[in-house]
Design a protein around this nucleic acid. Sequence first.
DNA 1: TATTTCACGAAATAGTTCTCTCGTCAATAG
DNA 2: CTATTGACGAGAGAACTATTTCGTGAAATA
Lengths: 198, 198
Amino acid sequence: MAERKYLMRKRAEGFDATRERIVEATAALHYEQGVAATSYVQIAERAGVGAATVYRHFPTLGSLVLACGAHVNEEMQPPLRENAPAVFAGLGTRQQRLERLVAELDAFYGRGAAWLGIAARDRDNVPELDAFLRQVDAGVEALVREAIGAGSPEAEIRLMTALADVSVWRSLKRLNVAPAEFRRTMVGLLDCASGLAA
Amino acid sequence: MAERKYLMRKRAEGFDATRERIVEATAALHYEQGVAATSYVQIAERAGVGAATVYRHFPTLGSLVLACGAHVNEEMQPPLRENAPAVFAGLGTRQQRLERLVAELDAFYGRGAAWLGIAARDRDNVPELDAFLRQVDAGVEALVREAIGAGSPEAEIRLMTALADVSVWRSLKRLNVAPAEFRRTMVGLLDCASGLAA
DNA sequence: TATTTCACGAAATAGTTCTCTCGTCAATAG
DNA sequence: CTATTGACGAGAGAACTATTTCGTGAAATA
């Protein structure tokens, strides 16, 4: 019953490695089959551990999604509210800023559209996914706001944000046009939208 | 072993009634929870019938989805290729035709966007859903084609069809603007898009 | 070395889902 | 009335899933 100091540095390494394997297996399975469709046993098998181990590390689906989300976040690098100003630094004309906005969105959606679709599928059943998607939306809106100037009428900002949504990007992407023309079209649409909202 | 003529009129009525109850229960559950998330037992319970009965009527998920789809089809009244010309009969100017197109799409998506979302969720796992959605897309494209004239450049048609997609409609609908203004905006976007594709 | 701690996974429990078999019973026909 | 048909549902069986318990063994400490 004596109080000992257990540091367990070496053991902690093994612990972290196991955790990492679980997170990676989860990410892969969620990517392949969706979040709700993935079971603990599948995760355990793919990670090469017992089901109980998965439970010990992540007692709830939410905690698993959260850890997995941190992993995915690095891959996607979603736009963040606080970074929005830096994105448009030094760009004077409206045209330049719109082009920058589209380039930024295109790059982001190129990295993350698949994951966004996966998260959207189960956002109603998994609060963590919903929270994540809200954050992404907020980041996109901040980009739009910064691009056209915070003083713009609210209706204009909202309309452009709607057009900046990943669902619109996805629909246009299906056209399979060259990247440069794709971005030109997006810029044109946003430009036009800002006139429509007036 | 004699050959008898069994007409079974009265019995067939009961059979059809049971079938109808199953289809209705299925539609309700698919609407509430999605297709893949709905089990045979749930359907049986809601229909007030044994699970085996559901199986006898619909041995595969596909056949169930198909029957359910016929039911939903009447509710949605999706645009059909062959009806496209009639929709624009007597409309001369381009503006009029675009307005008609938007009105048609808005009404259709108003009726069917929820179902389209449900079908889209599981289209990868259920071929029948995929086929249904392809048909809908074809109908929308036919509408667009008819609205701006079959002679228009393919790039223009494709771009406008992409903007006529339900995902774009949904994104704009989230803005919660008045119906008249909503349609005005859609028309403006499509009009602008036709210029961009040139 | 002796003792304590704790991550791990096999296995148990409990609850679902899918799918089929089979006996029942009302409708049909002679 | 008697024989036949076929729709129905209880329930069986196999395959999963979620979740926990517990013994083992390696690591940490003294």
